[in-house]
């Protein structure tokens, strides 16, 4: 009885410590949200207080209109959605083929993926820039989307691993019933939802968070900037407009938080799936 009592006290201390840590942890996240409602004067003299003395809404209007922000936000959403769809579609087909079948060239393709899997962005960005230029897609949306989608090697490996782990009898039974490649692939759809979620989420967040590629690919056409690159330009041009910046940051969080709210379970499972192979 005594032992249980002592443990509880320790637990209470841990919970209090975690609460304190969470407050610190939340502060940088909440700072732009609350700052977005402050006036410029209050912002400048704000100190570390979060709560606005007076709630003001025209920061959002200013950020939205003057900084071309709506455009950047739309760009970010379009790039992330299209490149994710592209990457999931392409790698699902390739992963399925590599997992389910053994054909001439199979081993070569798998070795190729493994050998080139972890090429750092810095190592490949200049030729990608050059390639997009040669294709005549520099300073266009498709060019940026292609560069963001990249080689899809990692997601293909994820699909390949997942399809290999499925019971093959299922496919063989379907094949006996006369189902060909396409039908067997469609049949497996309900089973592979988790790995679709994993690749979609990893793809979406990595495109959403990417900075190097959109920065380099929008040097020649500011209209194509993403939120991150646009906000950076905004801070360099209007370095004093802190509350406008905060409003921009707050707006930029809305799409990804909406996606997260809808697919929360998939986010957690999807991320965990990435390390389980």
């Amino acid at each position: 009885m005594k032992a249980i009592r002592r443990l509880r006290l320790r637990e209470v201390i841990v919970i209090i410590a975690m609460l304190a840590l969470s407050l610190f942890w939340l502060y940088p996240f909440l700072w732009p949200v609350f700052s977005a409602f402050k006036s410029s004067q209050e912002m400048y003299a704000a100190g570390y207080q979060l709560w606005p003395k007076e709630w003001i809404f025209d920061n959002f209007v200013r950020a939205w209109d003057s900084a071309n922000f709506s455009r950047y936000l739309l760009n970010s959403v379009v790039y992330s959605v299209v490149s994710t769809a592209l990457s999931v579609g392409v790698s699902a087909f390739a992963g399925y083929s590599l997992a389910r079948y053994r054909f001439p060239g199979h081993r070569f393709i798998e070795l190729l993926i493994l050998a080139f899997l972890f090429i750092p962005t810095a190592t490949s960005i200049l030729p990608i820039f050059d390639l997009i230029d040669q294709l005549g897609l520099l300073n266009t949306m498709p060019g940026i989307i292609l560069a963001l989608t990249g080689g899809v090697g990692f997601s293909t490996l994820l699909f390949r691993g997942f399809y290999s782990a499925l019971p093959q009898e299922l496919f063989d039974a379907a094949a006996l019933d006369g189902a060909g490649f396409v039908w067997q692939f469609r049949l497996s759809f309900p089973l592979v939802k988790p790995v679709i979620a994993t690749t979609a989420i990893l793809g979406f967040t990595s495109s959403w968070q990417e900075y190097f590629i959109p920065l380099v690919f929008t040097l020649g056409n500011p209209d194509l900037r993403t939120v991150s690159v646009g906000l950076r330009a905004f801070t360099q041009q209007f370095s004093v407009d802190l509350s406008g910046f905060a409003a921009g940051v707050t707006l930029s969080m809305l799409p990804i938080i909406a996606v997260f709210a809808f697919f929360q379970r998939y986010f957690i499972d999807g991320l965990a799936g990435a390390i389980k192979d």
Binding site: T123, G151, V152
Partner: peptide, 14 residues
């Protein structure tokens, strides 16, 4: 499609 993307954006750049 996979080979096109992989060769163009992973192998060739290297």
């Amino acid at each position: 499609p996979f080979l096109i993307l992989f060769l163009a954006f992973t192998v060739w750049p290297l």
